[in-house]
Simulated scan of single mutants.
Amino acid sequence: MTAPLLNHLSQGPDSAPPLLLGPSLGTSYALWDAVAPELSVTHRVVRWDLPGHGGSAADLIGPGASVGDLAALVLDLADALGIDRFGYAGVSLGGAVGLHLAVHHPDRLTSLAVLCSAARFGDATAWRERAERVRREGLEWLVESADARWFTPGFTVPALVRDHREADPEAYAACCDALAAFDLRDRLGEIAVPTLLVAGRQDPATPPAQLREIADAVTGSTLVELPGASHLAPAQCPRAVLAALRTQLDGPPASGMEVRRQVLGDTHVDRAQARQTPFTARFQDFISRYAWGEIWTDPTLSRRERSMITLTALVAHGHYDELAMHVRAARRNGLTPQEIGAVLLQSAVYCGVPAANSAFATAQRVLEELAEEEDSG
């Protein structure tokens, strides 16, 4: 019989680089609602629920649980989804899971982001006392102070407070046991995966000093402090969190010429540059700076989506030489021949059948050339 998995939500193309997102104690994967859809444009995003939280079964862990137990559940989930290596980002307890993975399973991670978390979460006795009280009295007494612990004054996310109220007390208490026993301070120097630390400047639970401690110990790590953010930064400051994660996952924005080469290929760009004259130089510079440096670098749309739009526009205007170039670009941007065909078929409806007929002929020729090049290569 297959062991039960953590409840999870997958978004984004299965072929995209995988990214797992971990939640904070007392919340569900809804913590990432304002961030995950944007990340799923370029990544296969899998966000998961802690045991007894959201849709995850409470009996996945029990009294005396450890962060290592939670990390093992995350790896079980990744294995079940066919994910070998993945980027990971987690908040608070979810961040602790990421630190554990980076120390004990570095071969599974491509990158690590630790948000509003710590290598040790204060006094272990306080966590054990919280666990015992939750087992005796339930969670309502904690729910009443959730906003004060999670957000700056006047801010709230009702869905997350509801998650807290509806969490299973026994599973919540087991997570408290895990936090009580967690201490990776003496092993932080072993972390070699690219690491981002994100701190909320108004976070009373894991103040910036605790993230700074990790950043100082992990060689090459980056620390970002978010003004106006408390403990649940992805919910309170999603745009800032998204910007930090995108920079880590995708690197700093490429220049226009870099993007032009990535999309169109060195051969095409070198040929265009070789043909450049004093008369056309300003136009070539304009294309690189504006079309490729501003439009194609805007992260609102993925390159796959931009290729689809560009193909349609070129069909509409009958620019078949440009279409041939962008069929090649579309393949470079991850579109399959079937997806390119679907775009051209859609164009037949809105741009006209004769235009689509010519476009199919152009695309067929380019795809055959690409196939021949792959066979000869």
Rank of each mutant, 00 (worst) to 15 (best):
M1V: 07
T2A: 11
L6D: 10
L6P: 08
L9C: 13
S10P: 08
Q11Y: 07
G12D: 14
G12I: 12
L20W: 06
L20I: 12
L25C: 06
T27A: 06
A30Q: 11
L31V: 11
W32Y: 12
R44M: 03
R44A: 01
V46W: 01
V46Y: 02
R47M: 08
W48S: 03
H53Q: 10
G54P: 00
G55E: 06
D59V: 02
L60W: 02
S66T: 15
V67E: 02
G68T: 13
L73T: 09
L75S: 08
D79H: 01
I83N: 04
D84R: 15
V91R: 03
V91M: 07
G95T: 10
G95R: 05
P106E: 10
R108V: 08
R108N: 06
L109E: 05
T110S: 14
S111H: 04
S111L: 02
C116P: 00
C116R: 00
A119V: 00
R120L: 07
R120V: 07
W127E: 05
R128K: 12
E129M: 13
R130T: 09
E132S: 11
R135W: 10
R136W: 06
E137R: 06
W141M: 06
W141T: 03
L142Q: 10
D147Q: 04
R149V: 00
F151M: 06
P153Q: 02
V161E: 05
E166D: 15
A167I: 13
A171P: 03
A173Y: 07
A174C: 04
A174P: 06
C175E: 01
A178T: 05
L179M: 13
R187W: 11
I191F: 09
V193T: 11
L197V: 15
V198R: 13
P207G: 14
P208G: 12
R212M: 11
I214D: 05
D216T: 05
T219I: 04
T219Q: 12
G220C: 12
G220M: 05
E225I: 00
S230T: 03
L232M: 02
Q236N: 03
Q236V: 05
P238G: 08
T247P: 01
G251C: 05
V259S: 04
R260T: 00
T267G: 15
V269S: 14
R271A: 11
Q273D: 15
R275A: 15
Q276W: 00
T280V: 09
T280E: 10
R282M: 15
F286D: 09
F286T: 13
I287R: 14
A291V: 15
I295E: 08
D298Y: 08
D298C: 10
S302H: 08
R303S: 14
R303D: 12
M308I: 07
T310N: 14
L311N: 01
T312Y: 00
V315D: 02
H319G: 04
H319C: 11
D321C: 00
M325P: 00
R328P: 00
R328D: 04
T336D: 04
Q338L: 08
Q338K: 09
G341S: 14
V349T: 10
G352F: 01
A356R: 03
N357S: 14
N357W: 06
F360P: 09
F360Y: 14
R365M: 06
E374S: 06
D375K: 03
S376I: 03
G377S: 12
